[in-house]
Nucleic acid binder design. Structure first.
Lengths: 172, 172
DNA sequence: TTTTCCATGTAACTCGTTACATGATTTC
DNA sequence: GAAATCATGTAACGAGTTACATGGAAAA
């Protein structure tokens, strides 16, 4: 919830926009940090305006459907900064879903485990490629830093997996 | 949902147990891979039995409250292995909530960002300590591997954060 | 002319959490 | 005698997703 608000307010900090536009921006440029869906974006935007963090006014261009343009206000900016500080200060205690399988890997023959993990590894390599050719648009340090961070984490995962696979192979 | 089932079935693969016991095990030993709550555990166990993956029978010791003991059956074992293979094969595309803040860090003065990130770093150091003295109970490779993995990931995050903070300090 | 794009929204649903209810029994 | 432990469960709620409805305009 708070993270969704932080994302939306952060987008509005750059410029006033309408819901459709915001949702498109999320899908196009923020696909690696959130999977927020259209309905959620619209609803949260609505809630944010009811709570007085953003102002709304309706625009219409020619005969196109009317747009609800959201503009962050002073209260919103201050709320945004609070959320931002909180997010930056907190090392979110993560749960890696992949660790569940690892924890129970003794129930499968080692050969099969190795095969499965090789699949995982292959996907990670795809992700690394994707991140390496992701556009660095110096639009500010932040965006590029976030991509760099993800590349670092995926690479760490990749390297660890490689070692684990090697270690398991010795056990066969 | 599937992950919850995988965890519960995995626990039952070791031995038949009743709900209370299972929930305690999760809180005591699995706190680093899941935060599954009591109500969720009970409900999922119930669902698993209705779907025919586990058998249930009621036991009673003296005058203590009756226990519902869950035992995994053939169908359950086969389902467990399917879930396990799926989990091991899939590199879950992760979203790091901390990246949201990083992405918008340009909206805060660099000094303040550095202060916030230092807080994050400090928490990470605590987590690293915790993991280093976590008991290695050679109960099978899996459990230890999962802990090792988490240590690797937290360390990667730590090292990256350290570098980023240094880099930001130069900008002040 | 059928599909896609623009733009917003709602209703039904799923998953999971919180907070409570029960009742005996052991511990302080 | 009060509090914690054992053991299960339910009801209410919250967050988010899916799938749909609308209707004009541009593109294929």
């Amino acid at each position: 919830m708070e993270n969704r608000a932080l994302i939306l307010l952060g987008i509005l900090m750059a410029q006033s926009q309408h819901g459709y536009q915001i949702h498109e921006f999320i899908e196009r440029n923020l696909s690696n940090i959130t999977d927020m869906k259209k309905a959620t974006a619209y609803a949260t935007l609505d809630k944010l305006s009811k709570e007085g963090y953003v102002d709304v006014h309706t625009e219409q261009e020619g005969n196109r459907p009317p747009r609800k343009v959201y503009t962050i206000n002073d209260k919103g900016r201050s709320y945004f900064l609070t959320l931002l500080r909180g997010n930056l200060s907190l090392a979110g205690s993560m749960y890696y879903p992949g660790d569940i399988g690892v924890m129970f890997l003794d129930h499968l023959p080692t050969e099969e485990v190795v095969e499965c993990l090789k699949g995982r590894l292959h996907q990670l390599e795809g992700m690394i490629e994707w991140h390496k050719k992701a556009p660095r648009h110096g639009k500010g340090k932040g965006v590029d830093l976030a991509i760099e961070h993800q590349l670092v984490m995926i690479t760490a995962e990749h390297d660890w997996l490689t070692i684990v696979i090697e270690r398991l192979k010795e056990d066969i």
